[in-house]
Structure formats: C-alpha cells, structure tokens
C-alpha cells in the first residue's frame, strides 16, 4: 500500500514537468504553492503567499494564475482587491480571465467592476469580452438587488457593510438607484449590440439582454408598472390601471 501511494505521489509531482516545455521559475513556484495549499489548507494564509509571488513576477503569466487563484478562493478581503487591481494593471490581455469572470463578479470587492470593464473595453479576445460583459451586467444586477433591499429597509446598512466589507459596502450604500439603472441599461445594451449570438446555457446573450432591458425599463422600482389586462378567477374583466389612486399590493400566488 505504501509503495503504491509513493508511486502516485511521484507521478503527480513529475507530471507537470513533462506536460510543459520549460516552465518559468514563477510557474514552478505557483505549482509548489498549489500543492502546499492542497495539503495544508488555509486560503487566507495562502492568499498572501500567492500575492507575494505575483508581486515578485508582475508580468509573468504565472502571476495571472496566482492572482486568479486568490480571486477564486478568497472573497471580500484586502488580498482579493489587490489581486483584482494587479490583474487590471498587468493581465487584461490574458485569455485565462474569460472563465474567471464569474468569480471576479462574485469577489465582493470594489475593484471587480473596474476589472470587468477593463476586460470589456481593452481586452483583445472577443470571448473574454463577452464573458466580461455578461458578468458585469450580473454584478450590477446584484448591486441593484442590494440597493432595493436597502431602500425598503434602511436599517440593513450596517449588515451590508459587514458582509461586503467597508469600501464596497459603503459604495453599495451610496449608490443612486437611477444611476445604477443607467449603468445596467448600458451593460445590457452593449451585450445586445456586440454579443447577441454568444450562447449562455440554453439561451443567447441577445435574449438575456432583451429580457433584462425590459425588466430595467418596466419592472424596476420607480417605473410605472406594465398594464395587466385580463379576467379574474371568476371570469370578470379586470385591469390594473382601473386601480389608479389606490396603493396596490400585487401578489403572485397559487398552490404549488
């Protein structure tokens, strides 16, 4: 048993060396860190080590790997923000950032939006740009949900700051709903114009954008509700605009 185990460890250790021609010293260090982390755990401790590696070799492709490791493994910490800033400064050209856009959007950092915008505006790869556009829009959508919740219950503000961190939490608490709606509209307009045929799960970004634009323009807080015209359960005609002048509680319900 021990023999088999040692053999497997040897295989794991030698495999990457064969797989790549001549890995840079930085990429070797990266792999050592990944292996160490898998044995020891402790993402917040390792975030500092990956960051140190990236700062030592700022332009090396392995620095992008190290920074992306941080973004994928720790959210809402100072190392997360630093990693996003360094990716923005040095690695906007990297094709690897495409598949990381979801993690970037979920990183709970004020620097996430800037990186996604940099990828969208300056990135050389169309598929990365499409990903950046999609996740920028989703990030702004999630900010809008927080803003709506804060508007309904302003006493949630301290919890928002606690969860999203001081800088990003304060930013969220200061967002103006109308301005945020404009940014969301712009992101989805870009999606519709530039990436309509890119597929996302079982749909296209064009369809995603059209649906979202309708929601922003007609289903958001502050917009006049779309007319509802039809019949009630008993078959009598019923129209939403007939209730103007009254506060309306609209409840979607059923047995399910």
């Amino acid at each position: 048993m021990r023999v088999v185990f040692l053999f497997l460890v040897t295989l794991a250790a030698t495999y990457p060396a064969h797989a790549e021609d001549s890995p840079s010293p930085a990429s070797k260090q990266f792999k050592v860190l990944v292996d160490q982390y898998e044995q020891e755990g402790g993402a917040t401790v390792f975030a500092k080590r990956f960051l140190a590696l990236a700062e030592e070799h700022p332009k090396d492709p392995a620095a992008a790997d190290a920074l992306l490791w941080i973004v994928e493994n720790v959210r809402g910490r100072s190392e997360t923000t630093k990693a996003l800033e360094l990716l923005t400064a040095n690695h906007v050209d990297s094709e690897k950032l495409g598949s990381a856009c979801g993690d970037i959007a979920r990183s709970r950092s004020l620097a996430a939006e800037k990186l996604l915008r940099a990828l969208l505006d300056k990135g050389p790869h169309d598929d990365v740009k499409a990903q950046a556009c999609y996740y920028l829009a989703l990030l702004l959508d999630s900010e809008a949900i927080v803003v709506d919740q804060l508007r309904a219950a302003p006493d949630l503000a301290p919890r928002v700051v606690q969860y999203y961190g001081k800088d990003y939490g304060k930013h969220l608490a200061s967002l103006k709903p109308d301005e945020l709606a404009k940014l969301r509209e712009q992101a989805y307009e870009t999606m519709l114009k530039s990436f309509p045929d890119v597929t996302a799960q079982d749909t296209t970004l064009g369809k995603v954008a059209e649906r979202a634009l309708f929601a922003i323009r007609h289903l958001s807080v502050g917009r006049v509700a779309p007319e509802i015209e039809g019949e009630d359960v008993f078959g009598k005609p019923m129209k939403l605009s007939d209730y103007r002048g009254k506060v309306v509680m609209l409840c979607f319900w059923g047995h399910w």
Partner: peptide, 18 residues
C-alpha cells in the same frame, strides 16, 4: 412565488419582492 410587489397610487412600482 409568492412574489409581493407594491405600487403607489400613480401605478409606480415602489417595492419589489418584499
């Protein structure tokens, strides 16, 4: 669902998914 939205007297959506 249930999804509760509240509109003001002008038909403007004021609260969503409350």
């Amino acid at each position: 669902r249930p999804a509760i939205h509240i509109l003001d007297a002008n038909g403007v959506i004021r609260y969503k998914n409350l």
